[in-house]
Design a protein around this nucleic acid. Structure first.
Lengths: 337, 337
DNA sequence: CTGAAAGCGCTTACAG
DNA sequence: CTGAAAGCGCTTACAG
């Protein structure tokens, strides 16, 4: 295959500007001061030739890829789009490329793809990589930022996530104070999910602070999944257990709760309040419009990417960043529009 | 910056196996027959050294990037996740990388990023690239597959999209035949959107074939947008216009219609049927569950990627592929569950 | 502030 | 079937 390589190279630019290729390179990378005169001639030559440096050549010579990787289990869910949007907004503005690696494919991911010949650093979402793999990469000096999960203690990797606990506490308190709810069920997220853990913690605190005791039988699995949540609520109903509200660990499971309650002919919010977490795009359009907590997922993505790029440039970064969330009151809790 | 480059190279492998680097390269690329004996020694040396070829070096020497690009306006909407899922499933299995380029950023996209030094080919979604840009890239021999849009006539680029027309016709016919609807509104998509065009064509055909005349005042903008759709239906209602069904060009605008009707106290489907298109993830959970047409967006992504990779390998590919869609009956049309 | 030259790790004619 | 060598387009000590 002999694809013509017609684009101009750094040699062409050097020739036209009457300088050496080293000078062009320095201009390109701003890696040494140039005389104003030279800089001008170089710039002129570059624009005349419509020069664009060859990324592979740069990468090979400099041992930098100008690329970061995003590692996640699978491409799915409602978080993916806003997360990507946030990440790509910063990679595009900083002229970095983004590669995506999924870890729960049939073929096991070749760990070497996560090394420094492919990327300058990694964004790792949730538990898509084991502590062991994280450790291996860290030892190999690969910069890593964790998203929505905390660092293995010995590694102390920077992480970015959202504030879960106080928002959850505020939301549940709202149910208690404003809507006089006393028997509030919690639809938990996946087992080891940290967000769910803190949301549950906030829930428990709110109950305790209002002198309501926590009824463990009202804490049931939602798994961030419509059907799981739906079936958990169905079982709760069938068990004869009474409850006047459900706090779902995310909007998706809240939708499952709404569905189960509707099936059972129970009115929301008249008989049972339902609230979620995340404030996904469709939350305002559910029936009734969902009271929830807004999670700034795009900002999680952009912040994590910013931090990673700083690490790549050897700047200091903060080890934990908790992005702010905000309760948003709609009708499913009992508030009027 | 002196990052240690500790990984083994093709030279190390050659030395250990007692052959030349050319032989290793040939083994790697399967570009020439090797004696069984040699192949064995090479393989052994590679595994012993945990060798992984350097992508930038490969790319620089071979003038191939092993990377494809996805070009789209913005990262948004419900199609993005399934589309990516489909694309990534094939790029991962074929050891290709994927780069994303958005074209409606504040900074204009540098067209050189779409050239062959960055990618071996491009997937172009909707009208994210102008005909002129497509033409430029095509002349530069960049392989291109169009997604959800047809080719500029003179370029004859392969495209993949879904079957819109007959599914729409079937859906509208269902409204007429099974639910005796006679005054069916259409919520159109964005102006030049081809999918919307064919959905509207199917709608018109269904009406004509059932001897219903098309009332142009019942064709109003939905724009694949909840609020636009909602407001269009509100206006229709306010105008005193009667209608007993609405066919929304996509599920999102169907949700807008549902919202407007609910506000107005109109019962769906008792008084007005509402149907959509796409069968997005939440469609079964709307209120009432949405009758719609299933669009295999993940398959659109994987098919387009497959075709692009074939083009990159100089295989023949078909110029148009229409992926099958399927009506899915739920309750919003009037069907019982 | 600038240049000459080695080197990054591969691929690929060219020879045999 | 295999090897020696040039070359892909940059960056970066080393010198001056």
């Amino acid at each position: 295959m002999t694809t013509s390589r017609n684009a101009s190279t750094i040699r062409d630019v050097a020739r036209l500007a009457g300088v050496s290729v080293a000078t062009i390179s320095r201009y390109l990378n701003n890696s040494a001061p140039l005389s104003a005169d030279t800089a001008e001639r170089v710039q002129a030559a570059m624009t005349e030739l419509d020069f664009s440096p060859h990324p592979a050549a740069r990468s090979l010579a400099s041992n930098r890829t100008h690329t970061i990787g995003l590692v996640l289990h699978r491409i799915e869910g409602d978080f993916f789009t806003p997360l990507m949007e946030g990440i790509v907004s910063v990679t595009e503005s900083q002229n970095f490329n983004l590669l995506i690696f999924t870890t729960s494919q049939s073929r096991k991911l070749d760990m070497r793809l996560l090394g420094s010949t492919y990327t300058d650093g990694l964004l790792v979402f949730l538990d898509s990589l084991s502590d062991e793999d994280l450790s291996t990469l860290h030892q190999a000096k690969q910069p890593i930022v964790l998203i929505h999960r905390s660092s293995p203690v010995d590694l102390n990797l920077p992480m970015v996530t959202i504030e879960n606990q106080s928002a959850s506490k505020q939301l549940v308190s709202h149910l208690i104070e404003t809507h006089q709810r006393k028997e509030i069920a919690f639809l938990s997220g996946p087992k080891k999910n940290e967000d769910s853990f803190w949301r549950e913690t906030g829930y428990r605190q709110a109950l305790l602070e209002h002198s309501l005791k926590v009824d463990e039988s009202l804490i049931v699995p939602g798994d961030y999944d419509i059907l799981t949540a739906q079936s958990s609520v169905q079982q709760l109903l069938a068990s004869g257990k009474t409850f006047d509200a459900v706090f779902a660990a995310d909007d998706v499971s809240a939708l499952g709760a709404l569905t189960a309650l509707k099936e059972a002919g129970i009115e929301v919010p008249a008989q049972v309040s339902v609230v979620g977490f995340d404030d996904q795009r469709l939350a305002p359009f559910l029936n009734p419009p969902l009271t929830t907590v807004h999670a700034p997922t795009d900002m999680v993505g952009s912040t994590a990417a910013d931090i990673l790029l700083k690490m790549i440039r050897n700047s200091e970064v903060q080890s934990e960043t908790l992005l702010p969330t905000k309760m948003v009151l709609r009708q499913s809790c009992g508030c009027k529009k």
